[in-house]
Amino acid sequence: MYELKYDKDICATCETIDCLMRCQYMEMDLESARQERERILNGEDSRVLTDCVTCYACEEYCPFNNHPFYLIVDRQEEKGIWPVPKPATNQQLVIMAPQSDIAPKKIQSPTINMCAFSMLEGCIRGSLFEGTSIISGSDIFCNIMWLHFAKNSTIRERLPKAIDNIREYYLKDSDVDELVHFHDECYGAYTHLAPAFGIEVPFSSIHLFEYLIRRLDDLKDRITPINQKVAYQRPCSSRLIPETQHFVDEIFTRIGADRVDRKYDRENALCCTFAQQAQQRDETADDVLKRNIDDMVEAGAAYCVFNCPACFFTMSEAVTNSGMMPILMSDLCQIALGE
């Protein structure tokens, strides 16, 4: 049930082993990368399974879209490896469990999916989101976060139920078959992870950034360029959907933001460190956070823009202390609209 679409033969003939060679958290030469890959393929112990900080980046690095990271997580779980200590994982399993308090709701297009983060519904405001419906709650949590916890089994169990809930409670009686996902996580879950696990998704997905671009085009007469240097913090889930990354530049062009040229952007992006902290790697997290923020400051950024609320909450204090303004992408667009 929900077998990972992974092709052993592709890896067997892969020369470059980009998945491990480009990993920013593990030093490896080609020979050792080859050996570790073999071990993972054969279900043997590998240091990758314990040292991986679950940044998701190898999903993007693999030129063949062969899902090396999903495989790592499957293997971790098979081997009983707990990247996050068991009690903390179990606690999250309780906190993030569906509460079964979903109720039918009539929605209309465009509908913004806020996933489990109802507390962020306040972000859906102003002319950007005029006339939108919102859905949110624990029963439609996309559950992709379990990739950090070696709990693909939880994704396999809970994601199909979340999809069923969306269909039953929202789509069935409404004339809507398309959702705008406020978070990269959900877009990644429904367009990348679900197909990779063979989970059927009965609706089409729009990335928030694509939606923002459409709205900015509609409202272009009202835009005042913000003329500020902005650093972008990529969330881990954007590694699953690199095809959406060009939207960042397109939004910046429309609102007159200058994306700073820096070392840890685009494919070299660093994690927000939430996962490393959960994995008890505080020293790694300190180092990554410092390098990342120093890099933004050196590049002269006035804003650090986020799409993921977890990144925002993890980094905002350090960003502010470094003299930059942390902001969500939708809020940055609202500034350009004078709202």
């Binding site: 707990w82 996050v84 200590p85 068991k86 009690p87 903390a88 606690q91 939430f274 902290q277 959960a278 008890q280 505080d282 020293e283 300190d286 909450f313 993890t314 905002s316 204090e317 350090a318």
Partner: peptide, 28 residues
């Protein structure tokens, strides 16, 4: 940070034994 590291080090045994772990308390 030094004090945090001392606290962490004192509880390492429980993390190694997988019977305890630090939760992430977000700055907010």
């Amino acid at each position: 940070t030094w004090k945090r590291n001392l606290i962490r080090a004192s509880l390492k045994k429980f993390i190694d034994d997988n019977v305890g772990g630090f939760m992430v308390v977000l700055p907010v």
